[in-house]
């Protein structure tokens, strides 16, 4: 077989193999912020309440949660009886994962929803049963993978960063939001 034939054979074989297995799931937007609000808090009236943490608050949350606070800006909605909905991002393999976390006026997680998931692996964290593990958890629970949150093999990075994000936000409520 000469070089040209070899390259042609190799390229066609590769294409054949790749075509056979071409059935993947892609990154996408699962919920808009409004849809997440309706899913978590139904028709509860909430107003935009964006917050900028002070440097001291940022350090305090980091200390108590053990999780780095990358941004001091919090984008949130708040109801008159002090329920919260926080739009946040956690680190993914290549890009961030957009999430919405509902917190009650007792600082407990009402629900966690994934808005945009940009990774090719780890979609298992979108399963309601996995996300349901966070419900009623608060800062005192200090959620952690393999401790009180079950890890999903093959989706470890997403599991760890989503859990860390919820842990950080419950401590944010504990340190800051409950006093607003």
């Amino acid at each position: 077989m000469n070089r040209r034939d070899f390259v042609r054979t190799l390229a066609m074989s590769t294409l054949g193999v790749l075509t056979t297995f071409n059935n993947r799931v892609y990154a996408k937007t699962y919920l808009t912020p409004d849809q997440a609000k309706r899913l978590i808090w139904s028709d509860l009236a909430m107003v935009q309440t964006n917050i900028s943490l002070t440097e001291q608050q940022q350090k305090s949350i980091q200390r108590s949660s053990g999780i780095r606070v990358w941004s001091r800006n919090i984008r949130a909605l708040k109801s008159s009886d002090n329920h919260w909905l926080i739009y946040d991002q956690v680190i993914g393999k290549h890009e961030n994962i957009d999430i919405a976390v509902g917190l009650t006026n007792e600082g407990k997680v009402k629900a966690v929803e994934v808005l945009v998931y940009r990774e090719s692996y780890g979609h298992q964290v979108l399963h309601p049963k996995w996300l349901g593990q966070f419900v009623k958890k608060s800062a005192s629970d200090r959620v952690k993978v393999d401790k009180n949150i079950v890890n999903i093999s093959g989706a470890t990075l997403s599991c760890v960063h989503l859990t860390d994000g919820v842990n950080r936000l419950t401590h944010t409520w504990n340190q800051v939001l409950q006093y607003i």
Partner: peptide, 19 residues
């Protein structure tokens, strides 16, 4: 040779992600 081998699947297939 390198590019043809790598671009073949890239151009021909739908796209996914990577480890």
């Amino acid at each position: 040779l390198s590019l043809s081998l790598s671009l073949f699947p890239w151009l021909a297939l739908e796209k996914a992600n990577a480890g």
